[in-house]
Nucleic acid binder design. Sequence first.
DNA 1: TTTATTAGTAAAATAGGTTTACTATTACAG
DNA 2: CTGTAATAGTAAACCTATTTTACTAATAAA
Lengths: 147, 147
Amino acid sequence: MKNDPDKQPIARLMILAFRGFEQDLLSQLKEHGTCDITLSDFNVLRHLDREGLQLTTLARHAGLSKQAAGKIAKELERKGYLRVEMDKEDGRAKSVTYTKKGQKLIEKCISIVRAIEQHYETLLGKDKYQDLRASLATLLNMAPEKS
Amino acid sequence: MKNDPDKQPIARLMILAFRGFEQDLLSQLKEHGTCDITLSDFNVLRHLDREGLQLTTLARHAGLSKQAAGKIAKELERKGYLRVEMDKEDGRAKSVTYTKKGQKLIEKCISIVRAIEQHYETLLGKDKYQDLRASLATLLNMAPEKS
DNA sequence: TTTATTAGTAAAATAGGTTTACTATTACAG
DNA sequence: CTGTAATAGTAAACCTATTTTACTAATAAA
């Protein structure tokens, strides 16, 4: 009982739970044959929608500088997940869209995330799971908002 | 309602809640006049106990390599929070202890953390707060254990 | 008493960013 | 319609936190 959760700061419980989720996602992606995606890649990828986004918009949504988002986008383009083209309406801008491969990846990610959440719901029971989400959201809304 | 918490992956709620806590802690430390501590410093500091720890043990507890822990310990020694001495029983080892200043800092940290947790408990109500802790702990125990 | 293990250090490399400074394009004010 | 300001993106340098590789010195074990 040295690591009794009741003795741990709540922040520690939060971060460990978060990392557990991350690792689940990553290892399940690997089981499905995708090994070339990092968590920060995923953090960029997940903000795209079907119509494509301008790089600057993408950066803002992902909470990154334009430079950081640009570097990751270039890397994901190299790996075949994204298409980065000149924007047709704005000669300065670039438009980022999924390739077929990227579309498949993000769908896989979404379904894995959904499965993990389902698993959590099963473990905790529907009510406690909803309470968990609600409580986290409550604590969140007391803090300055982002994204 | 674009950022409806109900639509967000639970992992996102977790990480945002965690960061909110971190920022609270850091900014309250600043209000109390301590500006020279980073979050990774704190992550090392918090594992020490009064009797002092061997550097390698400290590293293991903090979940870091010996090198990383050593560098942070050296930095914290320079700032006056830690004392790093040769171990009297083992000529290879170093023993890390709090200085008076470090002791005061960690006590301040503990009291801030306690205050934040109190605040959370007030926001959510005692029951929901305990449920939150319990649910996080449940999800955690499904994952491989650390530290 | 040699051999293996352990504690710690140093230097280079890596990951994942930011800051500063710049170019090219567009928007806007008069 | 033109010059100035704002915006999109890039490049390079830097920063933080950390790991990997390679090493020394001290202890433990065969």
